[in-house]
């Protein structure tokens, strides 16, 4: 498989148009991160326009966290250009820190404080004016449904609550961009659903969100764009429908017919839009170029060739299939 990124958004293909740059909250160009001899990120580029939820997908060790750490100003040594709201991460990280909120893949909470103290601690760290702090803390607690736990010790909270408290902390200074690294890892199904709903609410508030996850179908439910990263390279970047469309071009249709398959296969090879036919023990796996030959037309062609069809099954396309198709399971 080629390691060239499959860029599906016309606006982002190659060098982005100058007109789109100011709109992008996140602008990453040719990012490279090295840890000694290991090159964890190998020249990835992507943009996230304002208000989008960008799902960052990739196997362990693909370079997701490294990329997010660069955006979060926690990775000093990198190559390439990374901008948030037009501000270069390298030249003015302090300003960048006021524009983004970072939630690492662990809780990052102080167990010896209460929820109120924890949020006031970070409100002070983010230099939120004293007069507004109490109100903001109440608001974020309300948003994350933790008001009733305001005076509880952090170490007494459940994992889901700690995660929501971490999200409340991220929202304190009202950042434009939220960087969420594996936010749902380790949560039970209920906490996961609650967290997902919370992210949807933030999306509706117009926040730009970059979220990385392994749980693909969850991302599919609220991400407007997806970036698939493998071995430090971005192998796909675009909207979900774009990715599906891209992968559907090479869709495989499994067909079982009564009688001999050989003559049918010979007939199908002459049909335009069929790129390959695999004769398996009990079926034919037909690789179809969907833009030339839609699935419905393939069915018609089979009927025209006199096939008595027992099974006609286009391969299901979902995030997991897309992921498996686009990646090879290698790490940097």
């Amino acid at each position: 498989m080629s390691h060239e990124p499959v860029v599906l958004d016309e606006n982002n293909a190659g060098e982005p148009a100058a007109a789109t740059a100011p709109q992008a909250v996140v602008d990453v160009r040719d990012l490279r991160v090295r840890y000694g001899k290991l090159e964890a990120v190998r020249g990835i580029s992507f943009q996230i326009p304002r208000g989008e939820v960008f799902g960052f997908i990739g196997p362990n060790g693909a370079g997701k966290s490294s990329t997010i750490r660069v955006l979060a100003t926690l990775q000093k040594d990198f190559e390439g250009r990374v901008r948030i709201n037009g501000v270069d991460v390298r030249s003015d990280p302090d300003k960048v820190r006021t524009m983004m909120g970072y939630m690492p893949d662990f809780f990052g909470v102080y167990e010896d404080l209460t929820a109120r103290e924890y949020l006031h601690f970070f409100a002070a760290a983010y230099r939120i004016p004293l007069a507004r702090r109490a109100g903001i803390v109440d608001d974020v607690l309300q948003l994350t449904d933790l008001t009733h736990k305001i005076d509880s010790q952090v170490d007494s909270l459940s994992r889901g609550m700690k995660q929501r408290l971490a999200l409340a902390r991220v929202l304190l200074h009202d950042p434009d961009l939220l960087l969420l690294d594996e936010p749902a890892s380790g949560l039970d199904p209920r906490a996961r659903i609650e967290f997902r709903e919370l992210l949807k609410a933030l999306q509706e508030m117009g926040k730009t969100i970059l979220v990385s996850s392994h749980i693909l179908h969850e991302l599919a439910q609220f991400c407007t764009r997806i970036g698939i990263i493998e071995a430090g390279r971005l192998v796909a970047d675009g909207s979900l429908s774009d990715i599906y469309r891209l992968l559907s071009i090479r869709r495989v249709v499994h067909v079982q017919v009564a009688g001999e398959m050989q003559p049918l296969a010979e007939g199908l090879r002459k049909v335009e839009g069929i790129s390959q036919i695999e004769e398996q023990t009990d079926r034919l796996a037909i690789h179809v170029r969907e833009e030339v030959l839609p699935i419905e037309d393939l069915h018609q062609e089979l009927v025209r060739l006199g096939a008595r069809i027992r099974m006609f099954q286009p391969e299901a396309m979902d995030m997991e299939t897309a992921f498996m198709k686009l990646t090879e399971g290698v790490t940097a």
Partner: peptide
Amino acid sequence: WSTEVPTAAVSGAPGS
């Protein structure tokens, strides 16, 4: 900084 807001714009802020 006890009286001013040095952070990003607060539009849409939970606390705004």
